[in-house]
């Protein structure tokens, strides 16, 4: 199960324990199915790094501690990239993008959504996301047109 960035982010945020996203991620961690895309790792790391680079000394010390907690957390999860099998994941992403653009009206994805979806398709994983954009609902159909298979599980708060 590839967890989308929005799910990991919701899991890390202090909030209601019964939030559906938190419950879902906790279940995936418990049964060992949780993994993430390299894109999610990149997005989370750059967000934490930005805090580290921006603040005063005291803020930096706090940000450093949190960055290290994040890194330890991410180190404990399998992380999948697009580069395996001679970069085939990038080919899948290109086909997904083109399949979306060929629709009338065209379906446009944010880059992260597209690359994470392609990562899940490449590795035969289900993509779990809390994303509510209509384009995400079309992903399985577009994947089929793009000559690949993608299962998507939508998780709500």
């Amino acid at each position: 199960m590839i967890l989308d960035t929005n799910l990991v982010s919701a899991y890390l945020k202090q909030g209601a324990a019964e939030d559906g996203r938190r419950v879902f991620v906790a279940r995936c961690l418990a049964d060992g199915s949780a993994c993430i895309s390299m894109v999610t790792k990149y997005e989370l790391e750059r967000g934490f790094q930005k805090v580290l680079y921006g603040g005063d000394d005291q803020a930096k010390r706090g940000a450093m501690k949190r960055l290290i907690e994040l890194k330890k957390f991410l180190e404990s999860l399998p992380v999948f990239g697009l580069d395996g099998r001679m970069g085939e994941g990038w080919d899948i992403a290109a086909r997904l993008w083109a399949a979306g653009r060929a629709c009338k009206p065209s379906v446009v994805f944010e880059e992260a959504d597209l690359l994470i979806a392609a990562t899940a398709a490449l590795h035969g994983k289900t993509l779990a996301t809390a994303e509510t954009k209509p384009a995400m609902r079309l992903l399985p159909e577009l994947a089929s047109r793009a000559r690949t298979t993608l299962r998507v599980e939508f998780v709500t708060a």
Partner: peptide, 8 residues
């Protein structure tokens, strides 16, 4: 900041 760091 984390939300703003999403790759769009």
């Amino acid at each position: 900041e984390l939300d703003a760091a999403r790759l769009t």
